[in-house]
Amino acid sequence: MSPRVVFPNKILPYLLVAPQLAITLVFFYWPASQALRQSMLREDPFGLSSKFVWFDNFKKVLSDPNYLNSIQVTAIFSISVAAVAMGTALLLAVMAEKVVRSRGLYRTLMIWPYAVAPAIAGMLWLFLFNPSIGSLAYGLRWLGINWDPLLDGSQAMALVVAAASWKQISYNFLFFVAGLQAIPKTLIEAAAIDGAKPFKRFWTIVFPLLAPTTFFLLVVNTVYAFFDTFGIIHAVTGGGPGKATETLVYKVYNDGFVNLILGDSAAQSVILMIIVIALTAIQFRYVEKKVHYG
């Protein structure tokens, strides 16, 4: 532990943290409280008046089969994105470790997709896999796959999962590379001398020591899949076909800003917030126990 800094002035420490507090209050707590208030209001069809209805919006939302479908879609989407993005990133990071020549170039290229805006990433994948003009869609059909994400819900899901994962892989890759570099080489050598083959070495030494990184990324990726993938879904499928790729956050947008059912939408976003808080708490409570720092 580093020694505590003691400020002789009583006000100065508060002044120093004030900008951060102000930003958090204005951009997080205030909107969150507004959403909470909105979630208990019901607007008239013309948006001229609203009345306080307590938890009626929540009751309505939770009994809506579309909403329950959206929860299922989100679960599948988030688990797939986290698994694909982290798995691929880990694989690439391990491979990048083995690259001897122009390692820096390889790493730089790997990190680029992170700089692409979500909507642009979505468009990119949309064009590549567009059933009529996409070059990769052509390849898929050539392989005998009946590729049509505009009609087939699972294919649409696969497409948004791929696009969302692709964007997150760079970020995960960066952290995995850093995590791998922090593992002392002598441990790997000791394991080799102890008779562990490369695959075994990875699972018994490298992977456990990478656990803090993996855990951190699990939290970040979950939050990413829940919230930050709106742009990709909006650009690629628009929640369709039917409601096959309508995640919770997309439904919040759709009900609130497209259908203008503000009360329902606010209630949904409050539920979404509770879900993510709960998930993160669970991850910290249970998964972190199995993680060894240092």
């Binding site: 002598t186 000791a190 394991a191 001398i193």
Partner: peptide
């Protein structure tokens, strides 16, 4: 079939 003792011991921390 050799065993090595490293300078930093290289014990598996986990």
């Amino acid at each position: 079939d050799i065993a090595m003792v490293f300078q930093n011991y290289a014990l598996y921390p986990h």
